[in-house]
Amino acid sequence: MTEQLGNGDLGGVLSREQIQTLLRRDPPLVSGMPDPEMQLQPNGVDLTVASVARFSGAGAVTVDNAGRRLPGTELLPPDASGRWTLAPGPYLVRFSETVNLPASCMAYARPRSSLLRCGAALHTAVWDAGYSGQGVALLVVYNPDGFVLEQRARIVQLVFHWLGQPAAEGYRGAYQGETGQPAP
Rank of each mutant, 00 (worst) to 15 (best):
M106T: 10
P111M: 01
L122I: 15
L86I: 04
R110N: 11
A121E: 15
G67Y: 06
V63M: 12
C105P: 00
A109Q: 06
A58Y: 10
P77L: 14
S113D: 11
L75S: 12
S96P: 05
S96W: 10
D64E: 10
D64I: 05
L70V: 05
A120I: 06
S104T: 13
L70G: 01
A53G: 12
T85G: 07
R110Q: 13
Y108T: 03
V99I: 12
R54M: 05
S114M: 11
T124Q: 06
L115M: 02
L76I: 14
T73A: 09
L76M: 14
A125Q: 07
M106D: 12
S56V: 15
A125P: 00
G130C: 09
H123C: 12
A103T: 13
R94E: 05
R69L: 13
F55W: 08
A66G: 13
G89I: 04
Y131P: 00
A107E: 02
T73M: 12
T62F: 11
R54C: 03
L115W: 08
A87N: 06
S81P: 03
V93N: 03
S114W: 09
F55D: 07
G72W: 02
V61W: 08
V61C: 01
D128H: 11
T62A: 10
V63Q: 14
A66R: 15
P77R: 07
P88N: 11
P90H: 01
R83D: 14
F95V: 10
V61P: 00
G89L: 06
T85Q: 15
A53K: 04
R110K: 15
A53T: 10
R83W: 08
P102L: 04
